[in-house]
């Protein structure tokens, strides 16, 4: 097969699959939430309601594309695009199978952290440009929260890097052939997972939106497809974090009998489901609790993890 064609296929395949997953998650989330709340969730549009995202997209596209007169227009329009772009770019380094990955970067993990840092611009700019106090408060919260938790996120995976000796995600997966890193890096996993939830500002850490206090937080003024982009960005974020958890701690595509891609997606969807379960089950903490937990608990834990891991590696050598 032509090499270029193959890469094009992978690039657009990944793009298409990611967008489909993000869209599908709209239905999955509502359905799961429904089931966990003793309801059925959307079950009318198409078989089992699977065409619900389609209906939602039609609705959201048909809505008036409204920009408030008091908003900073160019920034207001740009902000939702940023989050989708940065998250989609992060998918470039995710190794789905040994053969399927958009880019096999040797600094893949750093690249992911960099992209995830850029994502904060979307929320901050979106909230600021809305010209709305609630949006601004939401944006400020998002900035502080994402920047804080990025620190522990980066630190939490250092153990993985130390164990595998590489920033290349492909090699990290390969390094788990004997033992998934979840076992030696359990602490790192916990910190990474919590930081991941905070990074995607999903419930229970959705303080930037916090509809009970801030109307809808940073996207209060957004409607129509621009709101839709924030929405899609969030689901893409969930998918990305789930895939990275799979890659970093649960051996990526590794698994018996079934083909690697299936294992990868089984593991990914498990964590996506867990994300949704968190939303269904946990209440939102106060903002000060969130930040305090970050700096007073997560940071020491992450540092402890690095020290212990480093010590063990040194001792083993």
């Amino acid at each position: 097969m032509n090499e270029t064609l193959k890469y094009l296929l992978i690039v657009f395949g990944v793009l298409g699959v990611m967008m489909s997953i993000a869209a599908g998650l709209i239905w999955v989330e509502r359905r799961l939430l429904g089931l966990w709340q003793d309801r059925y969730g959307p079950n009318r549009v198409g078989p089992m309601g699977v065409l619900q995202p389609l209906a939602d997209v039609i609705k959201i596209l048909a809505k008036e594309d409204w920009v408030p007169p008091f908003a900073d227009k160019p920034v207001f329009m740009l902000a939702p695009a940023i989050i989708v772009i940065t998250v989609l770019l992060s998918f470039a380094v995710v190794p789905f199978t040994p053969g399927i990955a958009v880019a096999n970067l040797n600094i893949g993990l750093l690249y992911f952290l960099a992209m995830s840092s850029l994502g904060v611009y979307s929320v901050a700019l979106g909230g600021w440009s809305s010209g709305n106090k609630y949006a601004l408060i939401g944006a400020l919260r998002a900035s502080a929260q994402m920047i804080s938790y990025e620190v522990f996120m980066g630190l939490s995976i250092m153990g993985v890097v130390m164990l595998s000796g590489s920033f290349n995600l492909h090699e990290i997966v390969e390094a788990q052939k004997r033992l998934w890193f979840i076992v030696p890096q359990f602490l790192g996993f916990v910190v990474f997972f919590i930081a991941g939830v905070a990074e995607t500002h999903r419930l229970p850490f959705d303080l930037p939106e916090a509809e009970s206090e801030l109307v809808a937080g940073f996207h209060s003024e957004y409607s129509g497809m621009k709101f839709g982009l924030f929405f899609v960005g969030e689901y893409l974020g969930i998918t990305l974090i789930s895939m990275l958890i799979t890659t970093l701690f649960f051996g990526g595509w590794l698994g018996p009998v079934l083909p690697p891609v299936v294992w990868f997606f089984i593991k990914t969807f498990f964590f996506i489901g867990f994300f949704i379960l968190l939303r269904a089950a946990l209440p939102r903490p106060r903002y000060d609790q969130l930040i305090r937990t970050g700096w007073k608990l997560m940071l020491p834990l992450a540092l402890l993890n690095i020290v212990v891991t480093g010590g063990v590696i040194l001792a083993a050598r």
Binding site: L35, W36, R39, A281, L282
Partner: peptide, 22 residues
């Protein structure tokens, strides 16, 4: 308690639904 909450909610996946399918 968080884990207990997660479990309790998860178990509801298999409970009878209250929705009446009007």
């Amino acid at each position: 308690s968080i884990l207990k909450a997660l479990w309790t909610v998860f178990v509801h996946l298999f409970k009878r639904k209250v929705t009446v399918l009007y």
